[in-house]
């Protein structure tokens, strides 16, 4: 029976104004002290800077969801230390209201959580909950958020969210989170179940939120192709531990190990690896089909 490791000395996490998330020896056990106890996180140590686009991947049951649920204190720290922005989540007292405003959480299939009569009410719900009493102010923030996700505010505001397409519903759900102006956006498989066009729309939206608004993005995903093309950094969970924490290109150079974790190698990474083995270099920042093609054309034209 495994017990959560009790920390004797609280480690001093070094954080500065540039740190969004810092974890030190974070451990978590489900059903601790029962015969069904299961250690989900085992000594997680990492540091995510503000403005990063980080993908969290791993096989089902690897601990990635347990980890991201710590980030807005849906799961409280059992042992180890966790800081998110100015909050120390290892302490008992946390300003949950402020934390959850700053850390927007988009769950899997967020459109299942839509419930209001109109898109506007749905997007305003969170703001109301967080105590924003001025209706006009709420609606202004909602309008901005709905615009941000690429929907026409005037057209959709009075529509029932249930009359929208799958991709649109998901964007409304996302707008509800964005209306709170989070600094960190945590998303659990934001593109699952969407068709390729819907996927592209959501990913380019998340990318632009990251690049243009500077929002820190932590995205859980099973789709290695999309992770490869979009994230700056990939953290791989395996059996509750961090197996890799590196750039997309470097990660997928470890083909055998990745496959052994039941993850897939992105097509373009597989292609670049094969070229590399033969002495041809595709630059690390060429990750899409288009970029890879152009890199090959440069190789052909060069020398």
């Amino acid at each position: 029976m495994s017990k959560p490791n009790k920390q004797v000395v609280t480690p001093q996490l070094v954080t500065d104004s540039q740190t969004a998330i810092a974890a030190d020896n974070l451990c978590f056990t489900y059903n601790a002290k029962s015969p069904f106890s299961k250690q989900a996180l085992n000594n997680i140590t990492l540091n995510i800077k503000k403005g990063e686009f980080v993908a969290v991947v791993g096989h089902t049951g690897s601990g990635k969801t347990t980890f991201v649920q710590h980030l807005n204190a849906l799961i409280r720290v059992q042992s180890g230390e966790l800081r998110v922005l100015e909050h120390n989540l290892s302490q008992k007292k946390v300003d949950l209201k402020l934390l959850r405003k700053q850390v927007g959480m988009v769950f899997q299939y967020p459109e299942y959580q839509l419930f209001a009569d109109s898109v506007l009410d749905d997007v305003c719900f969170g703001l109301k909950n967080f105590g924003l009493k001025d209706k006009a102010e709420r609606e202004a923030l909602a309008e901005e958020a709905i615009g941000l996700v690429g929907l026409d505010f005037k057209e959709v505001k009075n529509k029932s969210p249930f009359d929208l397409s799958g991709g649109e519903k998901r964007r409304v759900a996302l707008a509800g989170v964005l209306a709170m102006k989070p600094q960190i956006l945590v998303m659990d498989e934001p593109t699952a179940g969407l068709d390729p066009r819907g996927k592209r729309e959501i990913l380019s939206l998340v990318s632009s939120l990251n690049k243009e608004q500077g929002i820190t993005v932590v995205m859980v995903s099973h789709d290695m192709n999309e992770v490869y093309e979009n994230a700056d950094r990939i953290i791989v969970f395996r059996d509750g531990q961090i197996a890799y924490d590196t750039t997309p290109r470097d990660l997928f150079r470890n083909e055998e190990d990745i496959v052994s974790m039941n993850l897939e190698i992105p097509h373009m990474a597989k292609f670049a690896n094969e070229l590399e083995r033969n002495g041809y270099i595709i630059p690390d920042n060429c990750k899409t089909v288009e970029q890879t093609f152009e890199a090959v054309m440069r190789l052909k034209g060069g020398e």
Partner: peptide, 12 residues
Amino acid sequence: AKVLGGEVCQNL
């Protein structure tokens, strides 16, 4: 993609 990569190498 691996086969494709091999073929491209031969071309190069």
